[in-house]
Amino acid sequence: MADTTTGPVTAAAPVTREPATTKPVWRSHGRTRRSTRTVRVRTSAALVAVVALAVLVVPLLAPLDQQAVDLARKLQPPSLAHPFGTDDVGRDLLLRCVYGLRVSLLVGLVAALVATVIGTAVGAAAAAFGGWTDRIVMRLVDTFSSVPHLLLGIFIVAMFRPGVWPVIVSVALTHWLSTARIVRSEVLSLRARPYIDAAISGGASRRRVIRRHLLPGVMPQAGLAAVLMVPHAMWHESALSFLGLGLPSHQASLGNLVQTARGSLLAGDWWPTLFPGLFLIVPTLALAGLAGAWRERINPRRRSELML
């Protein structure tokens, strides 16, 4: 069955059915390719650091009056005083974006964490118990992968009324499926190795084998999936918020900012729409760049596959 778990962000990595058997034949690009890769990783790391610093430090330093409603300076285009301009009630957009990113990032982190824990537990259990448990669990994973993630998220949020927790739950519930698959196949490949046999014949209990030998082995893969999931979860939160099904409007996430900006956009004011979107794209690319480098380290075989 074709992979249906790929969502908007991870979707760029096509699932190759057979490993590429041929190596690239062009010769002279080895050096340049490596150096662009290093540049990309360093840029990504720097951007992640800037984003982390911004969402942690700016709220402590920022002058509060920039958050106050001031209709006298509403919808000012970008200037030196307000690099991103002001929104429809005169608040500084740069500050609003930083706060929005903070909210979106927090929701994304929590959702990715929850999804990773669920996915790791289910995937490891399915692989470790095997047999019918494995078959039924993986069938269920396949079944729920057949519902498009955003649609399932919309359904859950609609039934439980929009709010922070329904959004986190709906994002987490739609994202653990791929982690479960990754962890399961990783556990299965680890279980075939001699040191697991050695542990079992040495008298280790199933519980000990799972906790002591299998879980530490799958941690890199699960961690990688978690990092890749954060931008994905942020994307979902923004989409839900934009559709009016996400966070309440006083918790201005990036999606809420874009939603609010729709009114002024039709009057020709582009900046309240443009900047929150950029604030979503930059961390996504930075995290994907870092995760790509990490993947190449722990799984060099996949180098030919596409990043992101």
């Binding site: 760029a12 994307w235 989409a239 934009f242 874009v258 956009l265 794209i281 996504t284 990043m307």
Partner: peptide, 24 residues
Amino acid sequence: AAYILEAAPAFWLGLLAIWFFAVT
């Protein structure tokens, strides 16, 4: 450009397209 587009939310692209082609 492909990586940037992949990261850009479709609703945001749609709004920018409305701004450029319909409003401006």
